[in-house]
Design a binder for these strands. Structure first.
Lengths: 120, 120
DNA sequence: CACATATACAACTCATTGGCTATATATTCA
DNA sequence: TGAATATATAGCCAATGAGTTGTATATGTG
């Protein structure tokens, strides 16, 4: 992987704030859980409430936030509302973060020596 | 790009919080500015204060946060402290976010019709 | 040693926001 | 129309965290 970034130095303050906002959006465990729950397809708010073990009002609020950011799409069917992922990039991000964390953990383990791995 | 994520469904609550924390870390404009400033190599705290136009204490605090997350490395030289990027993954993340935002912007422009582009 | 400089840290203020409760707004059905 | 269900929204509280000021802790210098 080379050092070719189109983002950084050319970012205006406004753009920077937008990028930060995007990250902040994914900085909430519940919102991540919602995205994860939606990974296998659309779900109603009620289903998401059950899946995430969180309050309905709270789930609604976070879904609204994800919607406004363009990460979800909405479909009304009768009395229910189905939400679905509209922007896969979130998962790409999660993958990178997870990879980074794994790398970091591995480094930590290495730093601690391998003994920790064998002493059950 | 296929649908192969190793993250989501297998994430424990603790891991989820870690992932969220990582995102939250990048959810601050000043921290992003610091990373951007460090893109071209290490800088002292003083330089970073000048580059980011922020207070010294604040910069120090955010540098500490990035350090603790393992994104930076520290080198003391005399009375100065040099910080540098230790984990390039942040830039990969930025790139993905920027790409996502660009896509979103493009879609918005398309939705508004092309007229907006020509009316100066 | 006294002094200046660079960085870190503590304490405070203030704005943001997650989660809650209560309520409003559909929509379906009897 | 009235009741039931699903979702959204408003208002509140508490926690978090960004930015500030002031100070502590090196480290170099005369």
């Amino acid at each position: 992987m080379d050092r070719e970034h189109f983002a950084p130095s050319t970012l205006s303050d406004a753009m920077l704030e937008q990028v930060a906002a995007r990250f902040r959006l994914l900085g909430e465990p519940l919102r991540l859980r919602l995205l994860i729950a939606l990974e296998d397809g659309e779900h109603t708010v009620g289903e998401l409430v059950a899946l995430t073990q969180s309050g309905q009002a709270n789930v609604s609020k976070h879904l609204a936030a994800l919607m406004q950011a363009g990460m979800l799409r909405r479909r009304k069917a009768g009395v229910s509302v189905y939400y679905a992922i509209a922007d896969d990039s979130a998962f790409t991000l999660c993958d990178v973060v997870c990879a980074g964390l794994q790398q970091r953990l591995a480094a930590q383990v290495r730093a601690m020596g391998l003994s920790a791995l064998t002493e059950n």
